[in-house]
Amino acid sequence: MPIDNATGPPIYDSLIEEHGDVPGDVRQAAEELQQEAQQAVDFSPVHHRHPSTGRPESSEPPAPPAR
């Protein structure tokens, strides 16, 4: 009897019903982490941060402190 590969193994459907789509959830989490990592290592001038404060650098001078 031929196996229908379009739906996958029969046990897979029951496992998804019982436990959720774990591989799909892992795949989505990995994609989100990859996007976060790409943003974290983005050293373009738009995202440049001051070395001592870690805050985004601005082209405008900082405002004087209020007294």
Rank of each mutant, 00 (worst) to 15 (best):
Y12A: 14
R49A: 13
H19S: 02
R27W: 01
G20P: 11
M1Y: 06
H48C: 06
R67E: 05
S44E: 03
G8R: 11
D21Y: 03
S52Q: 06
N5I: 11
E17K: 15
A6C: 07
D42Y: 02
E57Y: 09
H50L: 03
V22E: 04
E32L: 13
N5C: 12
E60K: 14
I3R: 12
F43P: 00
L15F: 13
S44A: 05
L15T: 09
I11L: 08
I11P: 00
R67N: 05
A40Q: 09
P23L: 05
R55E: 12
A30N: 12
D42C: 04
S52V: 13
Q39E: 13
H47E: 11
E31F: 00
I3K: 07
I16V: 15
D4Q: 10
R67W: 03
E18D: 14
A29P: 01
Q35G: 12
Q28T: 14
S52T: 10
D13M: 04
V46A: 15
V26Q: 10
E57T: 15
D25E: 15
E60P: 00
L33P: 00
D25C: 03
L15G: 10
R27Y: 02
S52Y: 01
P51M: 04
A30V: 08
Q28R: 15
P61N: 03
P23N: 07
Q35T: 13
Q28L: 07
A37C: 07
I16L: 13
I16N: 08
P10Q: 06
A30G: 07
D25H: 07
P2T: 07
D21Q: 02
A29C: 03
P23E: 09
I16K: 15
H19C: 02
E32D: 12
G8Y: 08
E60T: 09
E17P: 01
P62E: 02
H48L: 15
P61A: 05
T53R: 00
A63S: 04
M1S: 14
E17N: 15
P56K: 04
Q35I: 07
P65R: 02
R27N: 13
P45G: 09
S58K: 04
P64W: 00
H50Y: 05
L33F: 03
A37I: 13
R55S: 03
Q28I: 02
P51G: 05
R67T: 06
I3C: 07
R49E: 10
